[in-house]
């Protein structure tokens, strides 16, 4: 998992596949750029490792909200502990149509975007723009 530019964190395997596929179809993203984690704890650990390496550039996370044991918010709380420089940015990805989730997202400084599933070409373009802005 070297130099992953984009972390995908979602416990739903089907959802991961869909998101992964759509991202790869976009020219901006290479397969090696993307790392998938169905266990958020593992994902968080990887992120931490990446951040501890000063050489790495900034990178992004596409984060699902609804996950068992550690949900999206728990992840963000954990992330905050070592993301003080703001090198990691997070885009929330959720199947939720609940407005509360959007508001919750805004309260985290590392969150730069909020998208609802399912992802499609359009949304991938958004992601790309967000990342490259």
């Amino acid at each position: 998992m070297d130099n992953c530019k984009l972390f995908l964190i979602d416990d739903d395997s089907i959802s991961l596949i869909i998101t992964n596929k759509f991202l790869k179809r976009h020219q901006g993203f290479r397969e090696s750029d993307i790392c998938c984690y169905s266990k958020p704890e593992e994902g968080l650990e990887s992120v931490r490792k990446e951040l501890s390496d000063e050489n790495t550039n900034n990178f992004w996370i596409l984060l699902d909200v609804n996950m068992p044991i550690m949900n999206g918010w728990d992840f963000l709380d954990g992330l905050q502990e070592f993301n003080s420089e703001g090198r990691v940015k997070v885009i929330m990805l959720t199947s939720s149509i609940n407005d509360e989730d959007r508001d919750m997202a805004k309260s985290y400084a590392s969150v730069i975007g909020f998208l609802s599933k399912p992802i499609d070409e359009e949304k991938v373009k958004n992601v790309y723009e967000l990342i490259n802005s």
Partner: peptide
């Protein structure tokens, strides 16, 4: 229930949508 709907059912539905989108491609 709203939660259930908004999260659980929706997630499955989202997956269905996503898959159907992919299948087109």
């Amino acid at each position: 229930y709203t939660n259930i709907i908004s999260h659980n059912i929706r997630s499955h539905v989202a997956n269905l949508l996503g898959l159907s989108n992919l299948i087109d491609l």
